[in-house]
Each structure stands twice: as C-alpha cells, then as structure tokens.
C-alpha cells in the first residue's frame, strides 16, 4: 500500500567523487545511493525508509558513455538508459545491451534511470542486467583510498543484494571491446510492452564460422538473481551451432533455472519458455552478425 508519509531523511548532494566517498566511509549502510531514483522513489512511496539519501546528481563527469575500439565501452554511473539507446557504437558493437535499453521500461524512465543503477538494484528482472551479464564486464568500485574492479559475474549475491561494500560507490561499468565475430542479443517476455520482464535472456558468443566459443548466456526472472546458464553454456561451448546443439542447450537450461510463481507469471510457464527464448536469442544474435 502506498504511503503519503515521507519520513525524515538527510539528502546529501556531494559535489565531487572524493566527497561522495567520504560520506560513504563515514555513514556506511545508513546511506541509500540514488542515481536516476526510479527504483528508490517508488520504494519510498511504498514505505521504504532511508536515513540518508545520497544523490549523485551533482557529481560532475559521471554521465559519460565512451566507446574505444581497443579498450571497449565505459559507462559512467550517471549515464542514462536513453544514452545507451542513442549510441550508434553500442548498437553496433553490443547489440544485447542496445536491444535491452531500447525496450527498457518507458521513455520517461529511460531518460532518468541509469545503467549502473539498474545493475546495482540487484533485481533478477533487470533488462540491462541480463545484457551486461551476457556481455561480461566489470564495475569500478571506488571507496575512500582504494578502488577495485568487480567482475559482473560476482555482482549479484542474493535477491536485491549485491557485492558492493557499504563504503563503496560503483562509478563505472566497463565492457570489453568485442573481438571480430562476437555476436550478442537480448530478448524478453512481458505481459504488455511497457512492463517488467516475466523472463529475459541475453546471449553473447564468439563465432568462428559456425563454431561458437566463449559462450555467455544470462537469464532473468528464473532465480533469485540474474544468472548465467552454465549447463547450456557447456553444451554450446566449442560446438557447432546448429539446430541440434541449440535444442540441447535449450533443454539444458532446465538444470540452470529455479523459477517461481509471482504476479507476472508462473514457474511452470517460465520453465516452458526458457529454452525457447534462449534458442531465439542465439538465433537473433547470429542473424544480426
């Protein structure tokens, strides 16, 4: 039930990265970090209470999205989903991410929500989460006095929970430059077009002729977190991509997922379409390549 009561909280607007990191160092878990705010504000309307809200709006220079052919893609913490959609580089080199961003939520939310925020929310349904999990990459986690690279595979630890330490700020997402022959795609199922996914899937494969390697498959809404699909990946890794191997991979997905019933769909349905959607995503990735 929505609430009309907005409880008291401190709003802090650091003007520099070091100031932000100091605030995190001093206040730790009391801080709720807000970039686009599209999740937090909704949560607050539903009763989520924060002691201190640190908004990144005033942080300079974090709204970049840069692509370099050798070092790859860098997305700053304040870069919006809409910036991804507007990027011809992302469209060309990271189809999975571009496709996810293109149909992400609604135009208003795409203008406000951030890619990094979507990852840090830790929802198993995040569309950008699926894309980034498939593409691979890392988050630069800054804290006062130190910085570390957190592999995307290590980010989500439980439903709504990430490996971010209380004193850390995710400042940048890096996705490596794709080698020649790298293909990727994103697909999802929703109840209506502008909706949260009831199942989403992203794939990224290195194609050498019809042989695939370095296979990364990610699926959402089928486990407490966004997950990779190790069994299906193992089927495809190093194999000839044909209808037979695809069928095998689609069947193997069942071992990787543990869906539940919720408002958006049922466990049975998710099991029923998971393989189909994986197959279609791989086909989509290869058809674009």
């Amino acid at each position: 039930m929505s609430t009309r009561v907005l409880t008291d909280f401190d709003l802090v607007l650091p003007g520099s990265l070091s100031e932000a990191l100091d605030i995190l160092a001093q206040n730790g878990s009391a801080v709720t970090v807000v970039a686009g705010g599209t999740d937090i504000l909704v949560a607050m309307k539903a009763g989520f209470k924060a002691d201190m809200v640190m908004s990144l709006t005033a942080l300079p220079d974090l709204d970049y999205l840069d692509y370099d052919a050798s070092s790859g893609l860098r997305i700053g913490a304040n870069a919006s989903i809409a910036q991804v959609v507007d990027s011809a580089d992302v469209e060309r080199h990271y189809p999975a991410l571009w496709q996810a961003a293109k149909i992400f939520a609604t135009p208003q939310l795409r203008n406000t929500a951030t890619v990094v925020g979507n990852l840090l929310r830790g929802s198993p349904a995040g569309d950008c989460c699926a894309a980034v999990a498939a593409l691979g990459g890392s988050l630069t986690m800054a804290s006062a006095g130190s910085t570390r690279e957190l592999d995307i595979d290590d980010l989500w630890v439980a439903y709504g929970t990430t490996a971010r330490a209380d004193n850390e700020l995710a400042v940048e997402l890096k996705i490596p430059a794709p080698a020649a022959g790298r293909v990727s795609a994103f697909k999802r199922l929703t109840r209506v077009n502008e909706d949260l996914a009831k199942l989403n899937v992203a794939v990224s494969l290195q194609m050498d002729g019809s042989t695939c390697s370095d296979v990364r498959l990610a699926m959402g809404c089928v486990a407490p977190t966004m997950i990779r699909l190790p069994s299906a990946e193992a089927v495809l890794e190093g194999s000839e991509l044909n209808s037979e191997t695809l069928e095998k991979a689609a069947a193997a997905v069942q071992e990787d997922i543990s869906p539940i019933d919720d408002q958006r769909s049922t466990a049975e349905y998710r099991r029923g379409v998971a393989g189909v959607y994986l197959k279609r995503a791989v086909e989509q990735a290869c058809s674009i390549a």
Binding site: R191, V192, L196, Q263
Partner: peptide, 27 residues
C-alpha cells in the same frame, strides 16, 4: 490479461498498475 488476483487468505495481490496490466497504446 486483466484479472484481480487473490492469495488463499483473500488478500488482493495485484491492486496496482505494477502488478495489474492493461493494454497500453503501443499494445
């Protein structure tokens, strides 16, 4: 698609536009 859901206790579980979906313009 449109239906109000209940759990076994009779609690309504989708009394919001997040959980109850209607066709939008693009649908």
């Amino acid at each position: 698609m449109e239906e109000i859901y209940f759990d076994d206790n009779g609690h309504v579980t989708n009394n919001s536009f997040t959980d109850y979906k209607m066709l939008g313009a693009s649908d």
